[in-house]
């Protein structure tokens, strides 16, 4: 392929990567500051990582986030997979599709105020329970999206054959349908889990005061100013997402190759 005259494309690409990484790099570098400032480096140390691990509030917030994410993921995965199968195999309808996908398409703020109003109207006390329900609501939609796209690629002939041979719908589902969509179910579950861990707006509206999730805790700290401790936390979270994305990419490539 000829590449002449396209130099500006490479400039754009490199510029874009700089744009994406310079702010993050700034935070990572300042997190190793030995001084109290989040902005100006005095010397290098791991002091703020130490403080981070000694901070019980952050530990609680992380635990709260994990609790919510696990609950929401289990629910979304089961219900979402069933929905996807139902939508593809039994009831093809664009109206139903749109209905089921609504929580993924609606602006998060809309869902957040709706659920806040609804939980209040029901008299449900706001807390981790209400956040879990809220996260399950949009998590389900994402699981449906992922599983459905896989189901559409498969044709239904195996299932038909299974039923022609006298297997009931339940047997067919467990022995034929489920194994063939298993990778997509796993992918959907991972997506729901990650989105829940990271979600701020809906949790902010549907949570009570006693049990902040990690993003809520981060938000309240960020509002109270820049500190090296937040820089250290940010760097750790960045590390986690680098590992997760790279692992995901490697796994994806491996399954692609196996096909």
């Amino acid at each position: 392929m000829r590449r002449s005259g396209l130099g500006f494309l490479w400039v754009a690409l490199v510029g874009c990567l700089l744009f994406l990484y310079v702010p993050i790099a700034t935070v990572v570098v300042t997190s190793f500051n030995s001084g109290k400032s989040a902005l100006n480096i005095k010397g290098l140390s791991l002091r703020w990582y130490g403080e981070l691990f000694d901070d019980p509030d952050l530990g609680h917030a992380l635990l709260n986030s994990l609790t919510v994410a696990v609950g929401a993921t289990v629910f979304s995965t089961v219900v979402g997979t069933m929905l996807a199968v139902g939508l593809v195999r039994f009831a093809r309808s664009t109206v139903l599709d749109a209905f089921v996908m609504a929580p993924a398409i609606l602006p998060d703020l809309m869902l957040a105020i709706g659920l806040l109003a609804f939980f209040t109207w029901l008299g449900l006390p706001l807390g981790l329970g209400t956040v879990t329900i809220a996260h399950a609501a949009f998590g389900t939609a994402f699981v449906v999206a992922v599983v459905r796209s896989r189901l559409v690629q498969l044709d239904g002939s195996l299932e038909e054959a299974s039923q022609d041979l006298g297997a009931g719908w339940a047997t067919t589902f467990v022995r034929i349908t489920l194994p063939s969509v298993a990778p997509a179910v796993l992918a959907g579950a991972l997506l729901a889990f990650t989105l829940s861990l990271d979600e701020f707006v809906i949790a902010f509206f549907t949570n009570g005061p006693d049990s902040p999730t990690l993003p809520i805790e981060i938000y309240s700290r960020v509002r109270f100013g820049v500190t090296p401790e937040i820089n250290a936390l940010a760097s750790l979270l960045l590390l986690v997402s680098v590992v997760a994305v790279v692992a995901g990419a490697v796994a994806f490539r491996r399954t692609e190759r196996e096909r």
Binding site: I24, F200, Y219, V222, L237, V245
Partner: peptide, 9 residues
């Protein structure tokens, strides 16, 4: 995939 608040921060 890094937390949105962290990126803003």
């Amino acid at each position: 995939w890094t937390n949105f608040l962290i990126r803003t921060y």
